[in-house]
Amino acid sequence: MDDGTTLWDEFKKGVITENALLKLMVGLCSALAVSNRLENGIFMGIAATFVLVCSNILIALIRERIPYQIRIPIFIIIIASFVTVVDLVMKAYVPVVYERLGVWIPLIVVNCMILARAEGYASKNSVAYAAVDGLGIGVGYTLVLLVMGFVRELLGTGKIILFEKTIVSLGPFNPPLIFVMFPGAFLTFGIMMALLNRYESRKKQ
């Protein structure tokens, strides 16, 4: 890029000002579905970030050779290949998490967040910027997943279990199960968005 943005700016943009989930509202499906546990959030975040960075780098590398008319199928094939890598690696090394994430791993292919970065950024920028952009968006996505996973698991089950160890416990209380169930995802995400709106309108005044 020539307009003087540094790599650090690109990274920050992905994490904060253009946060995929809270700002652009892309990639919502997987985020809402897997954020019922902190652990799921960690693995899903890593998987999506890996696919984002790799596909961004590859697309930026070959961007001048991709014919414009068939760019979308090419992007999808590239993304699908990296998703297959993640699919097989997770199945082999973390079968328990793989089972829990289920259909969401293959569905990373059609996560609009990744295709949007490929089309809107990686196909127009140099490799280093594309990689950093992928990393920034990925980290932003992961952070939202972590916050949501933390809130939902803590409120819904009363404790947080990470790698089979209880790390936080609220002690004896009857947790509102609804937070780990389906409506809890919409509720938590809606409140997060509203808080962000409120914070921003305060800052403007």
């Binding site: 509720l187 968005m193 509203a194 709106n197």
Partner: peptide
């Protein structure tokens, strides 16, 4: 409510 306008209320 102002903060909930648009997307957040849709999520609710």
């Amino acid at each position: 409510p102002h903060a909930f306008r648009g997307a957040p209320i849709a999520f609710m």
